[in-house]
């Protein structure tokens, strides 16, 4: 009786009931959060320290004086490339920003569009090749082609699209298996009656696709585009291999942090300042669109 009363009181006052299993998961999550936030705080404090202060007083001292390493990192953020005549030129942060925008925005949209359109045809039409599309995407997902990079590089040179934006965009116009499945499942769930009703009203295939069906998956379209954008914005390896004359910001950061042989940029506070500088735009993007990014997206199995 007493126990029941206590339990009732707990419920009334909204005290959460935790099982041992939940407590263990909570502890792991809390540890994880700490392991992420603590180094982030440390990195930010260190990024405001003087190189001399860092070397003499060690990694844990509070900054003797707050230094603006950010302006310095901004200045040293250059990547040397060879132009068409073989002469070395320095690419600055503004040009790298432009390269990043061109690469990430257009590639993100093209990748999303490809997955979206292929999934639409595959899910909404009953031609034989619609089933083939689905099967090919699944086979591509479960049959990995390991290290196709040398062949891709040779092919892009053969086609004359190496070191061009067009070449890179063309390469990114491919179906992404996971997102294809996501769109496919969404399209399958939409009733065929919408299509039939629109057809009776005289709507064509394109109108049905863009004005009737796509609005149903508008949220998923936005989330996939955003996830693609983040992926391409952070990608430095693909531009490094396929577009060496047009380095994006991500490659600039890679170059900046690997220049430990240069005295000017080898100090940890300066390198961390460069990193913080590059993290700010994405952090802001995350804050603005976190509800869209962390929305409810799910995918089924590989049937």
């Amino acid at each position: 009786m007493d126990t029941n009363l206590v339990l009732d009181k707990k419920r009334r006052f909204g005290l959460p009931r935790f099982s041992a299993f939940t407590v263990v998961i909570f502890l792991f999550l809390a540890l994880y959060a700490l392991s992420l936030l603590f180094p982030l705080g440390w990195a930010f404090t260190t990024s405001c320290r003087d190189a001399w202060d860092f070397n003499v007083n060690g990694g844990w001292a509070w900054p003797e004086r707050w230094v603006n390493n950010y302006a310095l990192a901004f200045r040293y953020f250059v990547v040397p490339v060879r132009d068409a005549d073989g002469i070395q030129v320095n690419i600055g942060i503004a040009q790298m920003l432009g390269n990043s925008v061109l690469y990430a925005v257009i590639s993100a949209v093209l990748s999303m569009l490809t997955s979206l359109l292929m999934a639409y045809v595959s899910a909404r039409y009953d031609f034989k090749f619609c089933g083939v599309i689905y099967a090919v995407v699944i086979v591509q997902m479960i049959l990995p082609i390991v290290n196709a990079l040398p062949s891709e590089l040779k092919m892009s040179r053969l086609l004359g699209i190496h070191d061009t934006f067009f070449g890179l965009w063309l390469m990114k116009t491919h179906v992404q298996g996971l997102y294809f499945l996501l769109f496919y499942a969404s399209f399958k769930q939409i009733s065929k009656e919408y299509t039939e009703a629109a057809r009776i009203d005289g709507a064509g295939h394109f109108t049905i696709m863009t004005r009737i069906i796509f609005p149903f998956v508008a949220g998923t379209i936005f989330t996939v585009t955003l996830l693609n954008f983040i992926q391409y914005w952070n990608d430095y390896q693909t531009p490094m291999m396929f577009m060496p004359s047009y380095p994006p910001l991500a490659y600039g950061l890679f170059h900046f942090t690997q220049r430990s042989y240069e005295l000017a940029t080898s100090s940890p506070p300066l390198q961390l300042a460069g990193c913080m500088l590059m993290a700010i735009p994405l952090f802001l993007l995350f804050v603005i669109f976190q509800h869209k990014l962390l929305g409810n997206i799910s995918t089924g199995g590989l049937k």
């Binding site: 999550l29 994880y32 959060a33 992420l36 936030l37 180094p39 982030l40 440390w42 990195a43 260190t46 060690g58 990694g59 844990w60 983040i230 914005w233 952070n234 430095y236 991500a250 950061l253 890679f254 942090t257 940890p268 390198q271 961390l272 990193c275 913080m276 590059m278 993290a279 994405l282 952090f283 993007l285 995350f286 976190q290 990014l293 962390l294």
Partner: peptide, 26 residues
């Protein structure tokens, strides 16, 4: 949920540099 997803949005170089100095210096 936000914290778990955060490393996925940051450039790999940012998290790598931060982690490298943290485990090697801090």
């Amino acid at each position: 949920r936000v914290i778990l997803f955060a490393p996925s949005i940051l450039p790999a170089i940012v998290t790598v540099t931060m982690y490298r100095y943290f485990v090697d210096v801090a």
